[in-house]
Amino acid sequence: MPLTPKAAIKEVQDISSLAARTFISAFKRPLYLKDILIQMDLIGVGSLAVIVLTGFFTGAVLTLQTSKTLSTFGAIGFTGQLVAVSLVRELGPVLASLMVAGRVGSGIASELGSMLVTEQINAMRALGTDPIKKLVVPRVLATTTMLPILTVVADAVGVMGGLFIAVFVLHISSNLYLNSAWDALDYMDVVGGLLKPLVFGATVSLVGCYCGLRTHGGTQGVGRSTTQAVVASSILILVFNLILTRIILAYSQ
C-alpha cells in the first residue's frame, strides 16, 4: 500500500501515542521487574557477542584506513586520537545501535507480531493485563538502559581492535596509540557518546513494539512487520544521529 501524506501523519501520531502511553505506564504499578531483568539479559547480554565483533573489526579497519592517510602527513602518531574520537562520537553509538536494531528490533517486532496474530495479546487483555505495561515497557526500558552500556563496550573493544592493528601491523608503540587516544577525548565526547545510544535505544525498541503490535495478515504479516521495524529504526537512527550531532556540537563549542 502506498504511503500517502495522511497515512504517514497517522503513523507518526500512532507511534507518538504509543511512546506517551509507554512513558506514563512506566511510572504506574505493577512494575514487571522480572520481565525487565529478563529483557535486559536477552537484549544486553544476548547482543554482547555481536557488539564485541562489530567494535573490534570497526576499530581495526579504521586504524588501517586512517594510518595510511596520516602517514602521508607524517602524523601516524595521531592514529589513536582519530580512532578514539571517531569511535566514541559516531561509529560506536551508530554501529552498536544499528546492530541492536537488526538483532533486537527485529526480535521485538516478530515476537509481538506473533503474539498478536495468535491472539496471545488479546488473551493477555482478557486476563486483565495491560500489554503496554507487560510487554512494551520492559522492552523499552531494557533496550534504553542496555544500549549505552553496549556502546561503551563497542567503543572500548574498538580502541583495542585499533591497538591490535597499530602494534602488530603498523608497528606503532602501544603507549603512543593509547595516550593519543586518551588525550583526544573530552567530557562532551563521552556525554554525547552516551546520550546518542539512549535515544537510539528508545527508538529501536519503540519502533519494534509499534511494528509488532500493528501486525496484520498472519505469518506473512509478521515477516513484513519485522522488516519494517529494522528498516524504520535504522533510518531513524541515522536521522536522529544527524540531529543529535548538531546539538552536541553546538553545546561543546
Binding site: T118, E119, Q120, N122, L127, G128
Partner: peptide
C-alpha cells in the same frame, strides 16, 4: 473482564 473467561479459537496459550 474478571467476571468473564474466554477460550480463544487457537487456544492463544502464552508459548
Amino acid at each position: 473482564r474478571s467476571k468473564i473467561g474466554m477460550v480463544f479459537q487457537e487456544s492463544a496459550l502464552f508459548d
